[in-house]
Amino acid sequence: MSRTITVFKRELAGYFATPVAYVFIVVFLLFTGITTFNVGNFYERGQADLMSFFFFHPWLYLFLIPAISMRLWSEERSSGTIELLMTLPISTTQAVFGKFLAAWCFAGIALALTFPVWVTVNVLGEPDNGVIVASYLGSFLMAGAYLAIGSLISSLTRNQVIAFVLSALGCAVLVAAGSDWVLNLVRSVFPEWVAQTVASFSVQAHFDQITKGIIDLRDLVYFGTLLVACLAANAVTLNASKAD
């Protein structure tokens, strides 16, 4: 556990050692702001809630989260520091988990810095703050799931651009699995239960549930399973191919 924290601290400090962290946070806030106010018509809707804020998160995260996760392992591989890290008395699991937690914590910091929209909606009206807290939790869980996918893909290549593109693609598949046109396409070929199964893999459906303020165990299990499965696969691929 203490070794996980050691890796976590180094990795998190690494984000802030370069301007990358600050650039990312600014871009993150800019995009969440634009989607909330310009695309989501926050004011025009005249509702005291953050639906227009959270609605776009599954799509925004498609390119914002892989930007965080792409460097996790690709950079270690390309600079050779993976040999330094993996010959310290730290297990692969501790290294994978420590790095993932640092990335997740960084995403959490960026997400937390969107608090002015929460303040705004409380000033303008009387929103259901329980729903908002649940939505933040859902958004954070979704970021974690995306990061786990990104971390896994990052461990497979030493090229950060490839890691970014493939992670975005992987997450896009998970989001799109719940969209109508994908489901209709599936329905036209397969029976309904196949379509239902595909839909149940979609991040969108689970996230939508949580943003309604319903924290269902099934949704938590979904995100938890996705996260743990990806990180476990990450450790396996790393052990098999760290020296390539």
Partner: peptide
């Protein structure tokens, strides 16, 4: 690994850290 000190080929290091930061990290990991 606890018993070993290792300098890999080409001495790969975390370039965005300072030597002090790196040594602190390694000392803690060790």
């Amino acid at each position: 690994q606890r018993k070993i000190g290792y300098l890999p080929e080409g001495a790969p290091l975390y370039g965005d850290m300072t030597p002090r930061g790196l040594l602190k990290f390694v000392a803690e990991a060790r």
